[in-house]
Design a binder for these strands. Structure first.
Lengths: 208, 208
DNA sequence: GCCACTTCAGTGATAAAGTCACAGTCGGCG
DNA sequence: CGCCGACTGTGACTTTATCACTGAAGTGGC
């Protein structure tokens, strides 16, 4: 996976069938790749773009689990494809996304024939497991104000962050009111400037 | 993986080398299979027994992530083996465990040659991912009293539960004091009986 | 422009959970 | 028996979650 793009691997392994068997599809922002409760038909494999995977608990609260980016597989789909279970989460396109949709048969074939493909799958899986372990630790043990500040700092580079408090609450897995209060407190300390649907990070960095 | 045990698959694929290449090791309760920070040399694959995998956050708090049981692989080890990263969690034997320890080379060979092995690996991975997603939801959104009661009910079948409040706190990813208080409250309502290092569930069931 | 309507944000009150500090209690062992 | 370490209980306080509600900002029709 280090040397070749996913498309190269597919072409190498599947030969001239590649284009027919594994068609690249384009998804616009906002499109839902899959919802909780649905069965999985095909494994999405991102060629470009970004997809957000989030889960809604019984309480109705949601949390973002991880994001899929270029050259990554959706590990949830693999699980659902292999076991026939329904999805437990949903995937929403954030940036226009091109993805190869692979059927179970083609997946098995690739796993059988391409060591590079296997390597890619295993790495993708490993990364997700790691992501989720870190998320568990975050949610279980870290303070919300710190997590919020970090989240803001990570996206403060390119001007104001366009997001509602509700969406931000889902990112962190908390309640909208909590986010509102913490943000207001940051504004009082002149660390951010708030507007409807927009957060401008001013001098948050200094605390690190 | 549905039809054959892991040992069968190993024997089928590796032939007479199997015994030399992938030796079965026995671990007593309490033994640590790996610690956070260590590198992974071999992939443990449980033939019998039970292993608890837990993680300690920067705060010093710990939480149990999942348990390995018969015929399961340790997905963390796969990740560490593939990427060369160090473990982020630790694994402790709970019941005497027999495990086959597989090297990177043998792992790659099995992945290449045995569809059953691949299937087993992928299923194991899928299950862990699912476990962790559920854990994220639990920790993020569910009430501690309910989680505690469920935990107790799940192990109330075979007489008193032998565990300290501290250990129970790690199971749930909370603080010892929280567990102590919730348990005391349950005892006041005559739902459990408490003793040092022991919890007896009396009539907790009725609430369901 | 004005109005109705929806979405978004702010906030008080209260409950649940986490943190800190410390006291009491039990069990084993010299 | 008495001491020590591990375990448990609890008060005081902080942080986070939940509930209920208000107001403010954008949107579209007329």
């Amino acid at each position: 996976m280090a040397n070749h793009s996913i498309l190269d691997i597919l072409n190498d392994t599947l030969g001239k069938e590649a284009r027919e068997i594994a068609r690249v599809m384009r998804f616009p922002p906002g499109q839902v790749l899959f919802r909780a409760g649905q069965k999985c038909e095909r494994l999405p494999l991102l060629v470009a773009g970004r997809v957000k995977v989030q889960m809604t608990g019984v309480s109705g609260n949601s949390i973002v689990l991880y994001r899929l980016e270029t050259d990554q597989f959706c590990p949830l789909s693999i699980g659902c494809l292999m076991t026939g279970q329904a999805y437990r989460a949903e995937a929403v396109v954030e940036e226009e996304t091109d993805a190869v949709m692979i059927s179970r048969g083609v997946f098995d074939r690739l796993m059988d024939q391409s060591a590079s493909f296997r390597q890619g799958i295993m790495e993708s899986y490993g990364r997700r497991l790691d992501d989720l372990m870190l998320l568990v630790e975050e949610v279980a043990f870290r303070r919300m104000d710190q997590r919020l500040e970090e989240w803001l700092l990570e996206r403060a580079d390119h001007g104001p962050i366009v997001i509602t408090h509700q969406e931000l609450a889902v990112e962190l897995g908390t309640a909208r009111e909590v986010v509102s209060r913490l943000l207001k407190e940051l504004e009082r300390r002149d660390m951010v400037r708030l507007a409807r649907g927009r957060i401008e990070v001013t001098n948050l960095l200094e605390r690190l």
